[in-house]
Amino acid sequence: MLSYLGRRLLLLLPTAAVPLLLVFFMLRLAPGDPASILAGDQATPEQVEALRHELGLDASLWHQFTVFCRQIATLQLGDSHFLAKPVIELIPPAAAVTLEVSLGALLLGLALGIGLGCWAAFRQHRLDGGVARTLGILGISMPNFVMALLLILVFAVEFRLFLVGGWVPISKGLAPHLRTVGLPILALALAEAGGVSRITRGAVLDVLREPYVTTARSQGIKEGRISMVYVLRVAGVQILTVAGLLTAGLLSGSAVIENIFGLPGMGRLLFEAVQRRDYQLVQGIVLFTGLFIIVINLVVDLLYAVIDPRVRLGAQEK
């Protein structure tokens, strides 16, 4: 297990480099000049030029790139030009909001999706199984921002259970905090649950047709235990793959949701940073997001080895 982990960790480095390279060059290829945005409408060309020099943007692309690489290597992310604060201080509070919403939505979405998918599969030929299947399709079909607006209408405007938008940190009390994060989490989770339920249903139905399930029945094992031990363990590998992909999707999904609900998360921070051509901040956020997705992938790979030990054995045989 340790050698497997070590091999996976080594692979992280090249994986992390690719998105960083991409974002560095894409930012500088994009139209719009950070110095002139920062200097404002009233600035003279001389002032803009001075600012550009101050930010190091008048240097050659190659020179900027070496500076960028040095920054990454020493884990210094620089200062945000626009907000005049170190990037390393801007990201954590925003990341905390995004992670809370995304992870909350991931767990809730997985629980709802797996439950719904199993229900649809185990009761395939019954009416309620069909209802569960239809609910899953509904979840996939509805974009999360539409879901968000519907939820706001019902739970915030009509029943006043949650706030329409805004952010109350958990330090101000759990109940007020939940009134602000509840709907964003639910909106993301419901959309995710749809996809998870479809995959779960398909995977479970596949496994239920396997001869070893018949063998388990011939042994007189209880249906519930067959479902948990024999079926879900195998179907779990497929579900896990999708969960990993969905988690990456949740980060981008939460950018939309953060804007709808006015949450001070990474999605909003990134959106604003791109509009201001705040190179350092954009790079910092992309680095952080990239690392997060890589870590999620690593966790998924490790979980594969836990669910299906053959994954680990296969690695050793090589």
Binding site: Y212, T214, V229, Y230, R233, V234, R310
Partner: peptide, 8 residues
């Protein structure tokens, strides 16, 4: 081969 569980 198919009648016995692959992971257990």
């Amino acid at each position: 081969m198919s009648a016995l569980h692959p992971i257990l």
